[in-house]
Design a protein around this nucleic acid. Structure first.
Lengths: 134, 134
DNA sequence: GGTATTATAGGAATGATTACGATTTACCTT
DNA sequence: AAGGTAAATCGTAATCATTCCTATAATACC
């Protein structure tokens, strides 16, 4: 995912262009790792002094709905990252220190079948520390 | 895991026996599914009118530390269930309606290897609805 | 440029969880 | 069985992430 592409998706879906949204996307494009709402606030506070959580959460939700961001929940906090170039279904190895990820193509669901459960979703994540944080 | 066994573990680790702890364990033994702290409160409120969240969370943490309960986090809430008879490493299919589970023996980590991440943990869960809730 | 609609700020409300001081209880010793 | 000590509990306040609300501001379309 690129900033330009994300902005086009926003426009195509009738959302307005704002400098905040552009900066949000540039932040995610630059960082390419999982960030919390607080991370976003702290990165953008210098630029937008009055930035509110409402704005951050609302935009994170919009971006996630549009497939621009991927979301996960870890340690009681939602975390977001720019959708991987790796299009298609995949999973992540996640650094617990910095949020950096490594994509995993293999999906364990390929070998799963169930008679007694109607399956709607699944989660497979590997946690640890990346080379820099280890 | 059985209530008797759990109480022995408590005793062996120097924790005191209380009727609340016994009732907590009986509740989990009876339900055999994932419960939230609120679920526990509501189930035990009739018996212990003044039961506080502090007591619930503290005991859930103790039980989890001792391996009596298994813990997961779903939808922004911690959930706990009696440790499966299925001893050894396993994963779960979880009913999003009632918390009932079905154990999965296969672990996707068997086929994973990583050079650039120091792996400490992983999570694999399948979500859906059980026969009764579907 | 004018107008309708969406976005945002700021702060209040919510929901889960944790922290804390005071009181009660379990368990060990005698 | 009584007493002392440490742990457990209650009741409530604090915390943290997230959502909700209302007035104001900015964007996009005509």
């Amino acid at each position: 995912m690129e900033v330009r592409e994300a902005l086009d998706i926003l426009k195509d879906n009738g959302y307005k262009f704002t400098r905040k949204r552009e900066m949000f996307l540039q932040l995610f494009a630059r960082e390419r790792r999982y960030l919390t709402a607080r991370d976003v606030l702290e990165h953008l506070k210098p630029t937008f002094s009055g930035l509110s959580f409402d704005t951050i959460y609302r935009n994170l939700a919009v971006f996630t709905d549009l497939g621009i961001l991927e979301e996960t929940e870890l340690d009681g906090e939602k975390r977001f990252r720019f959708s991987c170039a790796t299009s298609g279904h995949h999973h992540h190895m996640i650094c617990l220190e910095c949020g950096k990820t490594s994509a995993i193509q293999a999906c364990p669901m390929n070998e799963i079948q169930s008679d007694d459960f109607f399956i709607t979703d699944h989660k497979f994540e590997i946690y640890g520390y990346c080379q820099e944080c280890h």
